[in-house]
Design a protein around this nucleic acid. Structure first.
Lengths: 207, 207
DNA sequence: TAGATTGTTAATCGATTAACAATC
DNA sequence: TAGATTGTTAATCGATTAACAATC
């Protein structure tokens, strides 16, 4: 079963559905509908039903969806019902914040090791992690079988770091550096860049 | 001239073009082509030309685009040729990192004030900022005429904070809290959420 | 000139929506 | 039963691409 059959834009919405369902569950709800979910997320009910229909039938006519069941199904589809170990590369202000972030654990992710190239930082602590030498990155990531990494180094170093990560066996990169990475097409990349998002919004400002 | 005429998905790509052009300029380049830009960004040359054509004619047949001129034009289109003051709400680990981030200045943005509701934090320093009381948020944002805000509070508090920001005159929100915000449709919202991005990528992992 | 590259058109491709039978 | 809501189909809507005349 080739996964290319489901449009990426659909896949991109599943984590948002999951997030909202988890919140509903925390609020004590047991069921929801495409209409309700759509209103909360700001998209149409039809789109939610269409999206889910790519993966199976999860609801009941008349009553909607069981929240816990749909959460379970989405976690399975997204493969976040287990835990993925991650590497974090670059301990500046942002890397520091991410290393201390407690929110990964409940959503299928866990930082396993943290790297930096600065001799001043290597060996010291960030959160619960001892900062490791970037020079040992390939060896460690390979032996730990880490498939997911976050890049929080400077823009100038990001491409080289990314290439080394790929060489070490990493298959998915969350890139916080403000550059487009050029990597083999079987490597997944997502970008997080506040400047890009801010500039997107100011376009719409009244003159 | 109603701005809705240009698809949002086109607008979303302009900051990426701008980012790449600025990098080329830093590398000492003077001109580029849609083919070259496309290769660097990972999209087709045709798409870049089509996108730009919504706003005017910026290139020359045979030689391509002047980098400095195209940067100038994109900055003007995106309205980032000036500086937008921003408010930051929530000084946890992430808010702390953002308050210390030096990268906004060169791209049209500047943090002007930082808020938190915790009496322990109010009055203390984060980066160059003194943390202000959230209770005074509306008054300060209104008097400073701030139009852009970043939310780095907990998920539970984000909606209320967002509503207060809107009440204070904010028109664009960069939301780091892991919830969908429900706000008037004239308010621009962008989301930054590593969990969402990570879950998007693991879908594609081989079983 | 010959080669390169633009801006634009038309064709293709893909995503969203509206509608509704099925059914809880 | 009556009302609600699903999953799916077909129609609509929108975005991307390929191709090319224009021209630097």
């Amino acid at each position: 079963m080739d996964k290319k059959q489901v449009p990426d834009i659909v896949v991109a919405r599943l984590p948002i559905y999951l997030q909202t369902l988890k919140m509903l569950e925390k609020e004590g709800e047991y069921t929801t509908s495409s209409k309700d979910l759509g209103k909360r997320i700001g998209i149409s009910a039809a789109q939610i039903r269409k999206d889910l229909s790519h993966f199976g039938e999860f609801g009941k006519q008349g009553t909607g969806y069981s929240i816990s069941y749909l959460i379970e199904q989405l976690e399975s589809i997204l493969q976040v019902n287990g835990v993925w170990n991650m590497a974090l590369v670059g301990v500046g202000f942002l890397g520091h914040a991410i290393a201390n972030f407690k929110g990964f654990a409940n959503h299928g992710f866990q930082i396993k090791c943290v790297f930096d190239a600065d001799p001043q930082k290597i060996g010291s602590k960030v959160g619960e992690f001892t900062i490791l030498d970037s020079a040992k990155m390939e060896e460690i990531i390979r032996s730990e079988k880490i498939k997911v990494a976050m890049i929080t180094v400077d823009a100038i170093h990001a491409q080289a770091v990314a290439e080394l990560l790929v060489k070490s066996g990493v298959k998915a990169i969350l890139n916080y550096a403000p550059v487009t990475l050029n990597l083999p097409k079987d490597i997944r990349i997502q970008y997080i860049d506040p400047i890009i998002e801010l500039q997107h919004m100011t376009y719409y400002f009244q003159d």
